[in-house]
Amino acid sequence: MENKCCCGGENKEKAKIDEILVKYEGTKGFLIPVLQEVQHLYNYLPKEALEYVAQETKTPISAVYGVVTFYSQFHLNPRGRNIIRVCQGTACHVRGGKLILEEVEKELGVKAGHTTEDLRFTVETVACIGACGLAPVMQINEDTHGRLTPEKISLILAKYN
């Protein structure tokens, strides 16, 4: 394996990851907390960063990929500044949650699970956020928007940059 610098060739980036790795050196079960902290750095897990973590911790890169793809908390692609979670739980479903999702997707031009090109929004679905009384609902970052209709969507989205 060639010891070429990863993370866009910047030693600064490597140093940041090294700081995280040092904290967990010799700890059993280090991989998940390390990945969480690396994701916190970049808002997602860049391939080069994962390759660097694998190399430094002598973990097979295939195993790192296995862990990253198993947990829904980890993301391999850049995430938007604002995360939209449209509820598709039972209560929202009977109150038209699907129409809300379709409207969000149409408005932003991306499907659930994807991010807009300008990195403004990432659209996800969720299977209940415990606000069934407000169904249909969606969350944007920490804000919950309830009793939605497709007509309200564009106004709500306009509030987030």
């Binding site: 391939k47 097979p60 295939s62 790192v64 990929y65 296995g66 793809t69 198993f70 947990y71």
Partner: peptide
């Protein structure tokens, strides 16, 4: 050689190489 690992979860589980 550690070429393969299980990746994904549930119905989407697969045997995968890195990425």
């Amino acid at each position: 050689m550690d070429v393969y690992s299980f990746a994904g979860r549930g119905f989407h589980t697969m045997v995968s190489t890195a990425f």
